[in-house]
């Protein structure tokens, strides 16, 4: 891992837990990424896309009152790569999303950075 493996990458964090969200944001920014949004609810993509491409979205599955699967499908249809970060098992994923990249909580910072780096590399 280089010092800034995610340099210049525009990333959105969807995470309903404030501490986790804060932690992830610090992690990604340390790896050089530009975190364009940290949100506990499903965001509207349009304003973010106006500022440039979205390179990746880090998604928590459980958003408290809802699950984020529909958002993941929206991302997929917009060809925006995403990475699940969740306390649940992979078995929780619905069939059509079962093959999605996935990191189980608790995950150390290096693992999150590595997951996102690979995700973005796989897309380009």
């Amino acid at each position: 891992m280089t010092d800034n493996p995610l340099a210049g990458r525009r990333i959105i964090i969807l995470e309903d837990d404030y501490y986790q969200a804060h932690d992830s944001k610090d992690t990604l920014e340390e790896a050089g990424a530009t975190v364009i949004a940290v949100t506990a609810t499903v965001p509207d993509l349009a304003p973010h896309l106006a500022g440039g491409p979205i390179d990746a979205v880090l998604i928590d599955i459980n958003l408290g009152r809802s699950l984020s699967f529909d958002f993941a499908r929206t991302l997929r249809s917009n060809a925006i790569p995403f990475l699940f970060l969740t306390g649940y098992d992979a078995g929780m994923l619905p069939e059509d999303l079962a093959a999605s990249p996935y990191i189980s909580k608790p995950a150390d910072r290096a693992r999150i950075v590595k997951g996102l780096t690979e995700l973005i590399a796989g897309q380009s």
Binding site: Y19, Q20, G87, K105
Partner: peptide, 10 residues
């Protein structure tokens, strides 16, 4: 399972 993992993260 979810809570234990989250708790650790917390």
């Amino acid at each position: 399972q979810h809570r234990v993992r989250n708790l650790i993260g917390m």
